[in-house]
Design a protein around this nucleic acid. Sequence first.
RNA 1: GGGCAAUUAGCUCAGUUGGAUAGAGCGUCGGCCUCCGGAGCCGAAGGUCGGGCGUUCGAGCCGCCCAUUGCCCA
Length: 580
Amino acid sequence: MLPAGNLIGRCSFFEGECMKAKQYFEDALRAGLNRMELPWPDKALIEPPRERKFGDYSANAAMLLAGPAKKKPRDLAEAIAAELRAHDAEGQFERIEVAGPGFLNVTFAPGFWHGILADVSAAGTGYGASDQGHGEHVQVEYVSANPTGPLHIGHGRGAALGDSIARLLKKTGHDVSCEYYINDAGRQMRILGDSVWLRLRQLAGQDIPDLEDFYRGDYIKDIAARVHRQYPDILNMPESQAIDICFREAVDEILAGIKQDLRDFRVGHDVWFSEKSLVDAGRIDEAFADLAARGLTFEQDGALWFKTTEFGDDKDRVLRKSSGELTYFASDIAYHHDKFKRGFDRVIDIWGADHHGYVPRMQGAVTALGRQGALTVILVQLVSLLKDGEQVAMSTRAGKFETLADVVAYVGADAARFLFLSRKSDSPLEFDLELVRRKSMDNPVYYVQYAHARVHSMLAKAKDAGIAPAASGAASLAHLSTPEDLEICRQLERFPDVVASAAQALAPHVVSHYLSELAAALHKYYTQHHVLSAGAEVAAARLLLLSCVATTLAAGLDLLGVSAPERMDQVSEDAVPTAG
RNA sequence: GGGCAAUUAGCUCAGUUGGAUAGAGCGUCGGCCUCCGGAGCCGAAGGUCGGGCGUUCGAGCCGCCCAUUGCCCA
């Protein structure tokens, strides 16, 4: 959990007085307890109560202090409440009450909440930003699919998650680099080269049976045909040379396709790191030497072993087989060794959940390298693809929706991303193509985008009518006094906290849930309070409030990599299905 | 056989250092457009938080056992 000091630091981002409600209450409470010569309890919590009727924020301090002070929790709470009331010179609190077993509940005055609008207006879409990361150098590695075929929908989930986590970390003051690790060395790559070579010869009329263990997607056939066109005499070359050409061409083409798919999904990596370059540059040996210097490797049966049992693994692992071949583990160690040598304070890897057994080993390796705790592995559970409630087979040969590109073309990047980022990464996800594609209320992404578009529609109408939003400090804000006005202010005030905790937990779904709630508050407001016909002064105040909602929605959607359209007909276009 | 996760409303899911009557969307049923976009709003019904035991003032959350499901490893 964040120390309280961070909250103050975050507020310094804005000019003037810190308007954070939670912090304001905490400061007042601390001061009050101090005057009463009571300590601040270690487990003191200040949080919004579950039910609105209990006020804006609730503190459990009296319950924690009652025991040691030998007083009844409620009596002590009353005494603290009286102390707080006596010192609320600025009248920021509307109500200070004691409830239940001894909760201390406060409700802020409307004027306090109106101050939030100044924060949002001043920050614009930068609202919610902070420096809690203090420029920490963080690397996020994600997708990193083997370049043996196009990305599938599971990769899409990892891509959306990694990209959004990077956005969250940037927003909270981290120095972030996004990386894709290209596994272009090793056995899978040999199989890829062999697969293309085999198809090429088959296409040339040679009667060769399929291999048991090779890539058989149609894209292999396409690549083989192209390679043959490009190298007409390839069949006359020495086989090793021909296979090498097949391999290089295949990797280049598949990788280009992967990059295109990610671009279409609005995911961008800063660094594409080649495993082969790691091997070629001798980095593997460097890492081995590092481990050997720490006495953590040994030779046995002609193989090189790493003593992972010293770090909690259930057995030691091989780094280099007796045949001289390197294991995946070996290059992964070298890769992470390299990451830390590049100066990252913290490294985040996003992996498919089927690799979970690999996590302790990798953590052990990082510890062995002297960087315990610097690696965070996020596991992403499987995505099951449905169409009208029925499972779509995911095998390479099955239906036409197996690739990420097809799915994105069918439902649109916004809808796909929002769904991916609406769920905790460690729970399996159902992705129903028809549901996600639907432009209706069962689709949360449109609900949120519509809220944003609704505000902009009103702002445009207001402009035509010559009504401008009020200035953030205007006296007319006093008109924002209904429960719906204040509810929206409260929601807006939460946003920086939401961003901070989402970044800390590396959990973008916290943001998407928040956005749904803010959108709901906006839609409710829209139905209950007419803006443009409410009289010039009221209209101006309400326009300011709603434009702050739009700003915050846009800031939040940006963290998810989802567009914030000003008109809904602008989003429907990229959801139009491709031919067929 | 061992390990990692998951289990919350009919469905899909939130609920993070243990706190007040467990929430949302969809679906179902019933309401709301002479007015800023109805892609919306309001209301109702719907729960043994998989089961059991324990820890304590208090457990969806922590511990142990069991069940089911998924994955990893031998």
